[in-house]
Amino acid sequence: MRYMMLLKLDPSAAPSGGPSEELMEEMGKLIEEMTRAGVLLDTAGLRPLEESTAIRLAGGRQTVVDGPFTESKEIVGGYAILQAKSKEEAVEWASRFLAIHGDEWEMTAEVRQLEEPA
């Protein structure tokens, strides 16, 4: 089964300067382990909110708005596509990913199973 892990964070609670070199090294090790285990199918961090564009649909009309979005209290900072035997396994990998961020970060990993073609 495939799962998407959405990594969400409050940009005002993130450490200034972004991830440290040590954290990037630890993430690299975990990504390598997940890839070797056949669990990680794809992953990426997302560019800053200031570079984003939102297309909103309301009342049948679309509106295009460029970021940043002042109403955003929590943003998606990255994602991963996981191949796991169960939701519990996907949650375990997501928990390991969050754990390497230590005490400096406040993040949420939302794990959701992907709809597969019939």
Rank of each mutant, 00 (worst) to 15 (best):
S20T: 14
M4Y: 05
Y3T: 04
A80S: 15
E50L: 05
E22Q: 14
R112L: 03
T70G: 09
F97C: 13
K87G: 15
T70L: 14
A118C: 10
R47W: 00
E106M: 03
K87Q: 15
H101T: 00
K8Q: 08
A84L: 06
L30G: 03
P117C: 07
G78L: 01
Q113G: 12
P117A: 11
V65N: 11
G38C: 08
G38Q: 09
Y79D: 00
T63S: 14
K29N: 15
E104G: 15
T63A: 07
K29V: 09
V39L: 13
A44H: 07
A14W: 01
T63L: 04
W105T: 00
W93K: 12
A80H: 05
A99M: 05
A58M: 06
T35D: 08
E88Y: 13
Q83Y: 03
S52D: 03
L82H: 04
E89I: 07
S52L: 03
S20D: 03
L82W: 04
E115R: 15
V64L: 10
T35L: 09
T63V: 08
Q62H: 12
S52P: 04
E89F: 06
A13V: 01
V39Q: 07
P48H: 03
E92D: 12
S16K: 12
Q83K: 10
P117F: 08
V91I: 13
L30Y: 08
A118F: 13
E26V: 01
M27P: 01
F69W: 05
E71A: 09
R112D: 00
G17H: 11
G38H: 04
E115W: 11
D66F: 02
G45W: 02
Q113W: 05
S86P: 09
E25H: 07
W105F: 05
